[in-house]
Computed example of a mutant assay.
Amino acid sequence: MRVLAAMSGGVDSAVAAARAVEAGHDVTGVHLALSRNPLSFRTGARGCCTLEDSRDARRAADVLGIPFYVWDLAERFQADVVDDFVTEYAAGRTPNPCVRCNEKIKFTAVLDRALALGFDAVCTGHYARLVDGADGPELHRSVDPEKDQSYVLGVLTADQLAHAMFPLGGSHKTDVRDEAAARGLAVAEKPDSHDICFVADGDTSGFLSRELGERPGTVVDEDGTVLARHDASYAFTVGQRRGLHLDRPAADGRPRYVLSIEPVSRTVTVGPRERLAVRALAGTQPRWCGSKPAGVVRCRAQIRAHGEAFAARAWLDGETLRVDLADHAVGVAPGQSVVLYDESRVIGSATIADTVPAAVAADS
């Protein structure tokens, strides 16, 4: 097969490309230039879009003896990932930019261009497995639970999975680093990138402040009593405890958490932790990693990339995915993704639009 290997400049994508070469594929490496103004060097272990990363990817391609190109997707990345991220926070939601990048960039923009150029598949360094199923390729969890990235790939469709390769899904990270060293790849000990790649210093609040400016409002309790004033509602997220700067303690002396964010009035409501408990949720824009399920599906629902997977029942209500959890989840924010699993297989995903508190779900 003709394979386009997406090479970020890190150890995972370099070893994934090496394994594709070793498997006998005709491999071409490509580095995605996603930043409008790439820095020369990383800030610690953050980011993945620097000139240093591009050079590391090129050196790895030279060691593997494969052609290498740089594709400038900065404008597409800005519109589909960065601008979406800012817009979602401004609307009081908490997005996952890695999910959006996989959906819009790596397996839409890149895959579409690769297929147009005659490639058969796009190879990445994601930790996930593709298994041949009765109805086509199935997306499964990685064997390394600490590195599993099936959650952020839950937006991929069956057609996209048919043109994807994840060579690292059956490996543990330590083995990948050892293999990189044995292959003479200089990135063998390079630190992994963390957090949000386009917020290189890790200061998400500062980044949003530069993009959105001040949007002052109030912090209130559930009765509407004003407890504090803030400079920007987008600096908060559901479930947050620290940094609330409340003027007075709760009557019972217990900590308070962000329960909801109302972006129009810029009101942040806080309350006790038990009010964060959620037993049901609704998701929009459902996407299926295979055929669309019919009727009620018994599954496990995961709400964070490395969070707990809850036993659940899920079904489609028109274009809305309804999910009832067998046990309550805490701190579920609109904008997050809910990914459904059947054991290790990913069924599909949706973007959380609304939640039902555990107390309400129990009474209904």
Rank of each mutant, 00 (worst) to 15 (best):
V3M: 12
L4H: 13
A6P: 04
S8E: 02
G10N: 08
V15R: 11
H25K: 01
V27G: 02
V30A: 11
H31V: 00
A33E: 05
P38I: 05
R42T: 03
C48K: 07
C48M: 15
L51H: 15
D53M: 14
A57W: 05
R58M: 14
Y69T: 10
F77V: 01
Q78N: 02
A79S: 13
V86S: 05
R93D: 04
T94V: 09
C98Q: 05
R100W: 08
C101T: 07
K106T: 12
F107K: 08
A109P: 08
A109H: 13
V110Q: 04
R113I: 07
A116N: 10
D120V: 04
C123P: 08
T124P: 10
H126T: 05
A128M: 10
L130K: 11
V131W: 13
G133N: 02
G133W: 07
L139R: 00
D148C: 01
G154F: 01
L156V: 11
A158W: 09
A164F: 02
L168N: 04
G170Y: 10
D175G: 13
V176K: 12
R177V: 09
D178Q: 15
A182Q: 14
R183K: 11
D192G: 14
S193F: 12
T204A: 11
G206K: 00
G206I: 03
L208T: 05
S209E: 08
R215L: 12
V219H: 03
G224F: 04
T225F: 12
S233M: 11
Q240S: 06
R241S: 10
L244C: 00
D247E: 07
Y257V: 09
E262Q: 13
P263C: 08
R273T: 14
A280K: 06
L281C: 03
G295D: 03
Q302A: 07
R304Q: 11
G307K: 03
A312W: 06
A312S: 01
D317C: 01
R322W: 03
A326N: 12
V330L: 12
A333T: 10
S337R: 05
S337D: 06
E343T: 15
V346W: 06
S349Q: 07
A350S: 11
I352C: 00
T355D: 01
V356P: 05
A359D: 14
A362W: 05
S364A: 11
